[in-house]
Amino acid sequence: MRKKRKSSLTLIAILLIAGFFGLKPQQAHQVTTVAENISTTVTQTKNKTKQSSSATNTKATSSTQLAALNYQSGQNPIVQVNGGKSTLNPADWHTNRVIYSSLDSLNRTSSANTAYLESRNVANDALRVRQTVQPTGWHQKFAGKTAILNRGHLVAYSLSKGISLDGNYDPSQQSGDQNNLKNLFTQTAFSNQRIQTIYETEVRDALRAGKQVIYQPHAIFRGNELMPRGVQLQAISTDKTLNFNVYIFNVQPNFVFDYTTGRSVQGSMNVPTPANAPSFNN
């Protein structure tokens, strides 16, 4: 109603101005028509801008709803969940530990892991050991000499120093988590190294700044598929200065996956690289 009233007032003002300058009725009508066209164009442009800015948001919140999302070649591989705001409660941070969920009946990490982190959990990358376990859907393939799959961590190696396999803090454990099947899933190299690392870096920076953080990664599987369609990442610091909630599609440029098995073929798949994507592996 307000928009219509505003448009009407604008047109009346134009007609009054036209009368003031002695324009003939036909000329005044032409001026009015042009003004209406400009007003319509501006409104359409504003609407398109609003649609564009919300293109990477989703109303999906549950794991089932997120699993139903289909990635289309060329779209943003990052989706904002709940407006990008975490649903975690910062008041739940009590003890430095990680709650590793049990594997499901298909040996998948289909439930979220929840980490209660502090600065002492930032791991030294030099202490990494070779990964040997194979999560479900593991069928490695190479593009030239570059592997297209990673053993993706839910809670990153760099965020899990001192965390034992049972999830408790053990100061004798100086490296981060590497071969814990409850913390690994078949992830594309692009999803892991170019996207998930962005958010892991935000958590790591918060920890280095002395903040306490609740971080919850969740591999999202559709039905009985062995390779997840994506991973939901959310985190909040106890002072609420760190706060994000995103869903990352598990996709790889130039490859198409059969998520039922994890097998892949080369195909026409364009995945835009985020502007702030790093080039190192976490």
Rank of each mutant, 00 (worst) to 15 (best):
S54T: 14
V122W: 01
T41P: 01
V31F: 15
S268R: 10
L165Y: 14
N243R: 08
E36C: 11
I78T: 11
A60E: 02
W93K: 07
A18T: 15
H94G: 00
K182Y: 01
A206N: 09
R208E: 13
P77A: 10
S101N: 05
N270Y: 13
F185T: 10
G210H: 09
L9S: 12
Q266S: 12
R130E: 15
D92I: 09
L15K: 12
Q131Y: 01
R108Q: 03
Q196R: 10
A219E: 04
L88W: 02
Q193W: 03
Q131A: 05
G267C: 04
S39V: 13
A28V: 04
I248V: 13
Q65W: 02
N150P: 01
T61V: 15
R208I: 14
V42Y: 08
W138C: 07
V129A: 08
M1V: 14
F142R: 11
T132M: 09
N180G: 07
Q187Y: 05
T132R: 09
K161A: 14
Q234N: 14
S111D: 13
S101M: 04
T41W: 01
Q72P: 05
M227K: 05
S111P: 04
G152N: 09
A67S: 12
K48I: 14
Y100D: 00
G223S: 02
I236A: 02
